[in-house]
Design a protein around this nucleic acid. Structure first.
Ligand SMILES: Nc1ccn([C@H]2C[C@H](O)[C@@H](COP(=O)(O)OP(=O)(O)OP(=O)(O)O)O2)c(=O)n1
Ligand SMILES: [Mg+2]
Ligand SMILES: [Mg+2]
Length: 773
DNA sequence: CATGGGGTTAGT
DNA sequence: ACTAACCC
């Protein structure tokens, strides 16, 4: 049954802004936004607090623009490290939230840095068993709205003896009241219980992290996401299945997750469909003809409020990447620039991968390097190779090898052919760490990475200024199984005693507090504002004592009994997907010979003079920079003012030391493959490099030497910049390869590979073949 | 000059 | 393996 599940979507309110406001409490309650960079017209705004939204400040806006709209606004800068924005602070904060959510369900899916889907079916069923279906009372839903049941404002509340009934509370009450009728939907009762749990989850999130959030509760992910946005700061919305048609009748297609881009536009253009509900007029086949079988079926169901996508049991990202744009004149048009930024990106990636390994007991096996060129249209491409070790210089080196195939300029030249406007690295294909005592045997054998959150994210120094109580920070959550719900919820059992049987107008135990109303309370005026009225109101009906019909939609001839549906695929488990897939991962990457030496020393002080790290943050891993700080406010120039000029150092600190230029004995990776398909580069044909004394495949010597050249060149350049001296790159490098410049075409087919078949080519080998074949 | 820096999934 | 679409 399409309504058997109870899914919640929790989304943090103006997340980055809240993260900054927790760090610096003086920012609380003030108009505030987070900007990235500052030089170009005040930087780009990526998050806006609700006070500032009320003044018209939006994302995408430039900092300068925001200042015009709201002169009192405080713009907080995203931390910068290695010359680029660094979102670590927000990722860490997002993980804190996920940790809390995991206490409420075994199935939590991290959907983005600030939101997660939670399959609450199991918990809901359990609670209904324990407490009965009618145990939900309005006071348990003090910040809840029921879509389609909002009796709106206008004149009311005056005559009620002292009871301030707002439209929200009346709607909640009427809905709950309707659920106690015999013919009420069993699944609506589940939703009500889900809403209770969602209230508790959100309270726990706020108590334990200091961040407030909103939520949507529905029978599937799309509906949960959709209704979360109906009432945004510090509120939640439950969407009964019967309210879907009403909601969809005026919901622009592009508001639905997955339809916000070209698909939604083409549906409107080609089918003449404006609102989601209109899609229901098309047959499944018609929709399939329009956008393919899978998509067509998906739309056919979706416009009826049905979506079967499971909530995945995954709390950690499946890829870790970093990148940077180089717009306009900042484009990378020399090999030195490319190497420099590759080095910066590699450094960040290696650091993040290492931390990820420690925290999640897994290692990434695939490195992807990608770029974009200017043009009309802009072109882009990416290439990948195996990751053998988490070492910045190795990643840098491999990435460069992959990248240089696209350099139309000669390899020995200073210039880089089509200038690069965007460069990015990404690591993925995680497998559980080989470490002995890790994970159980089954998961180890299947090479399934641990995608559960394992331990508290070190709980850094990020003090919980707002957090109170000892609370459950102990995190006895290891992974999986032992996640049972426990949080300190007060308003629990109300026992079945007083079902709230009352009628409008009589004494109702309505919680008067709107739970939150503040400067931020600005409701979206676009589509969402309109759906705040009940169907009755939209139809011009009176709502006096009227209990809205719950019918009119497909109310299934359902069997009775809460567990009737249990047989369907898994009611309690309700299809929550445990990420145990990859029984035989497609990437049983064969470890292979390490063909090249690693130079630690891609750059040591790879910091060019101008790049500076930034906010002194907490005692981070910074080198020396002793900003006597400890308070949160120290930090990122919460520079609301001036400063407009500086992309420059926000505050100095040097980059943490990087491995230095010493050759290291190569611990060549053994080939070994568990799998017959994996082909390795044979370790034969090895010769010794005179520059570093390492064993190199003979056929790769040209590439190898080229690296020495490039690295030396880069080092030299960095020395120069730090000395402020002029420049000229004379490379002592015994550059050998040169004539062999065969740049790859971006759009065209790649050249054939050697007859060897393999899962993941060794980068240098791959490069070699593409290079000269 | 010029949103930018992330992520996931589906199609080929 | 790589690209495109979509999303935060
Ligand atoms: N294009 C975007 C969208 C979002 N974000 C970041 C900043 C946001 O704070 C965070 C969460 O995105 P949301 O769309 O959930 O927006 P907010 O949480 O900021 O606001 P809201 O209260 O509307 O959810 O992700 C971003 O960097 N770039
Ligand atoms: Mg949000
Ligand atoms: Mg979000």
């Amino acid at each position: 049954m399409a309504q058997e599940r109870v899914i919640a979507l929790v989304d943090m309110d103006c997340f980055y802004v809240q993260v900054e406001q927790r760090r610096d409490p003086s920012l609380r309650g003030k108009p505030c936004a987070v900007v990235q960079y500052k030089k170009w017209q005040g930087g780009g705004i990526i998050a806006v607090g609700y006070e500032a939204r009320a003044k018209g400040v939006t994302r995408q806006m430039r900092g300068d623009e925001a200042k015009k709209k709201c002169p009192e606004i405080t713009l907080v800068r995203v931390p910068e490290n290695r010359g680029k924005a660094d979102l670590t602070r927000y990722r860490d904060a997002g993980r804190e939230v996920i940790e809390v959510l995991c206490k409420f369900s075994r199935c939590v899916e991290r959907a983005s840095i600030d939101e997660a889907y939670i399959d609450l079916t199991e918990e809901v069923v359990k609670r209904i068993e324990e407490r009965g279906p009618d145990s939900v009372t309005v006071d348990m839903l003090s910040s809840t709205h029921v879509a389609g049941w909002q009796t709106d404002t206008v004149g009311q509340s005056s005559e009620s003896e002292g009871i301030n009934l707002d439209g929200r509370a009346v709607g909640v009450f009427q809905w709950l009241d309707s659920l106690s009728r015999r013919d009420a939907s069993l699944y609506d009762r589940r939703l009500a219980m889900g809403a209770v749990i969602a209230e508790e989850m959100r309270a726990a999130v706020e108590r334990e992290t200091g961040f407030h959030c909103s939520a949507g509760i529905g029978h599937n992910k799309v509906l949960a996401k959709l209704c979360c946005g109906l009432h945004k700061p510090k509120q939640q919305t439950v969407l009964p299945h019967a309210s879907v048609p009403q909601l969809y009748s005026t919901l622009p297609i592009k508001k639905v997750r997955g339809c916000g881009g070209k698909l939604g536009a083409s549906l409107t253009e080609d089918l003449g469909v404006e609102y989601m509900g209109q899609l229901a007029a098309f047959s499944e086949k018609e929709l399939q003809a329009k956008c393919g079988d899978k998509c067509g079926t998906w739309l056919y169901n979706l416009c009826r409020g049905v979506d079967y996508e499971p909530v995945k049991d995954r709390q950690v990202a499946q890829s870790i990447g970093c990148g940077k744009n180089f717009p306009g004149r900042e484009c990378l048009d020399t090999k030195e620039k490319v190497l420099h930024w590759l080095s910066q990106l590699s450094s960040e990636l290696a650091e993040r991968l290492q931390k990820d390994k420690e925290m999640n007991n897994r290692v990434a096996k695939l490195l992807v390097v990608g770029f974009r060129n200017d043009g009309n249209p802009p072109t882009s491409a990416s290439r990948s190779c195996a990751i053998h070790r988490y070492e910045a210089d190795q990643l840098c080196k491999d990435a460069f090898i992959l990248l240089k195939q696209f350099n139309l300029a000669g390899n020995h030249q200073a210039a880089w052919s089509p200038p690069i406007m965007n460069l990015h690295l990404n690591a993925s294909k995680f497998v559980e760490e080989g470490g002995a005592a890790s994970g159980n045997i089954a998961t180890f054998l299947s090479k399934t990475p641990n995608n559960k959150l394992s331990q508290a994210p070190s709980m850094k120094q990020e003090t919980k200024k707002e957090a109170t109580q000892h609370g459950s920070k102990e995190e006895r959550r290891t992974s999986g199984i032992a996640a049972f719900f426990s949080p300190s919820h007060k308003n629990v059992v109300r026992e079945v005693e007083g079902e709230i049987k009352t009628t409008i107008g009589t004494s109702v135990q309505v919680n008067t507090s709107p739970a939150s109303t503040g400067p931020g309370q600005v409701q979206k005026m676009s589509f969402f504002a309109k759906f705040k009225q009940s169907p009755a109101e939209q139809e011009g009906r009176s709502r006096a004592g009227g209990i809205p019909l719950t019918a009119q939609c497909e109310r299934s001839p359902r069997k009775t009994g809460f567990f009737a549906a249990k047989s369907v695929k898994s009611s309690s488990a309700s299809g929550c997907v445990k990420s145990v897939k990859n029984a035989h991962s497609p990437d049983d990457v064969t470890l292979q010979e390490e063909l090249q030496t690693q130079w630690k020393g891609c750059d040591k002080s790879s910091n060019d003079t101008s790049t500076v790290s930034q906010p002194s943050d907490k005692p981070q891993i910074q080198a020396e920079s002793h900003t006597p700080r400890t308070g949160p406010s120290d930090t990122n120039s919460t520079a609301s003012d001036s400063d407009s000029n500086g992309e420059g150092p926000q505050e100095g600190s040097t980059e943490p030391d990087r491995p230095d230029c010493t050759a290291v004995p190569s611990d060549r990776c053994v080939s070994v493959t568990g799998d017959a398909s994996g082909t390795q580069v044979d370790a034969e044909d090895v010769t010794k490099c005179e520059k570093c004394g390492k064993d190199i495949l003979a056929w790769e010597l040209p590439e190898h030497l080229d690296f020495h050249f490039a690295m030396e060149l880069q080092q030299q350049q960095q020395q120069q910049t730090s000395n402020g001296t002029g420049a000229s790159a004379h490379a002592s490098g015994s550059n050998v390869s040169k004539a062999t410049s065969g740049a790859a075409k971006i759009t065209g087919k790649r050249r054939g590979r050697p007859p060897k078949r393999q899962k993941i080519d060794h980068p240098t080998l791959d490069a070699f073949f593409k290079h000269r074949s």
